[in-house]
């Protein structure tokens, strides 16, 4: 049986962590490498780096962060933001990423999923999704960080992602993201019912029990959070202890 995973996500801009991370003992709260190392020490099962600027000029700095982190962090590293070609994927994997995450570029060019899976293997390809209720009982997929409605039906999109060979889906609900009222259980259930590949829950974690709840009530295999961990409101060991006490398998 695979353990459920707890994944902290670090948003990086110009080589610095956005919103800084308040860790005791970490002096430079903006240093992504130090933050990733601290998450590793806390027992994170995987670490996600997201390049939120994703400009061509800033690419080198961002990949330096990935390269440096890979020298100090020995759990899987997923890297996303600004990856829109097979070449970008190759460059990111070479920098030390174990998986690459694509989002808007996959919606705009779904072939990128199949090409990436073919060349690097399904296990390397995570497709991130930003989705929102459409007001008619369904969900629609957004691009560009949730700014552009792509008018793509979420439940059809996840099946296409699986068919094209992606290894994982990271599902972020725009409706619950930032609200801190818990993960979007309804959306997760609907997506998990349609695919066999692992689904990572993202967006909405606000309190300790939200993590155990998402594992108890949906088939999500991992839960991702950012600010909750950054601001030190919850630590990864706390989250894992709560899940374990409820009978959920954790590393």
């Amino acid at each position: 049986m695979l353990a459920k995973r707890i994944i902290p996500c670090l948003d990086v801009r110009h080589g610095k962590v956005v919103k800084g991370v308040n860790f005791e003992g970490v002096k430079d709260v903006g240093d992504p490498v130090a933050c990733a190392a601290e998450y590793n020490r806390q027992g994170a099962d995987e670490i996600v780096f997201y390049d939120i600027v994703a400009s061509h000029e800033g690419r080198g700095t961002f990949l330096d962060v990935v390269r440096e982190t890979a020298k100090q962090v020995f759990v899987p590293l997923t890297v996303g933001g600004g990856i829109s070609s097979v070449e970008d994927m190759r460059e990111t994997l070479r920098a030390g990423a174990d998986k690459i995450s694509i989002n808007s570029s996959a919606v705009k060019n779904p072939k990128l999923i199949s090409e990436g899976a073919e060349i690097f293997g399904s296990q390397c390809i995570v497709v991130g999704i930003d989705a929102k209720r459409d007001g008619r009982g369904g969900y629609t997929v957004y691009a560009n960080g949730g700014r552009i409605d792509m008018h793509v039906d979420l439940l059809e999109w996840v099946q296409e992602i699986e068919r094209r060979g992606a290894g994982e889906i990271c599902l972020n609900s725009i409706d619950t993201d930032g609200v801190r009222g818990g993960f979007d259980l309804e959306m997760l259930k609907d997506v998990c019912a349609r695919v066999r590949i692992p689904v990572i829950a993202s967006g909405g974690a606000g309190k300790l029990s939200d993590f155990a709840t998402v594992f108890e009530q949906t088939d999500a295999t991992a839960a991702l959070a950012a600010s909750l961990f950054h601001f030190g409101e919850l630590t990864i060991p706390q989250v894992k202890a709560d899940c374990r006490s409820k009978g959920i398998l954790m590393r």
């Binding site: 695979l2 353990a3 399904s122 296990q123 290894g167 590393r251």
Partner: peptide, 28 residues
């Protein structure tokens, strides 16, 4: 089960080995 087998899984240790010394259980 989903293939590939990808993620953290627990080792069920059936034999002593020097490779596993100084490692506390559970080992994922």
């Amino acid at each position: 089960v989903i293939i590939p087998h990808m993620g953290w899984n627990e080792l069920v240790i059936t034999q002593e080995s020097p490779l596993l010394s100084n490692i506390e259980k559970p080992v994922f």
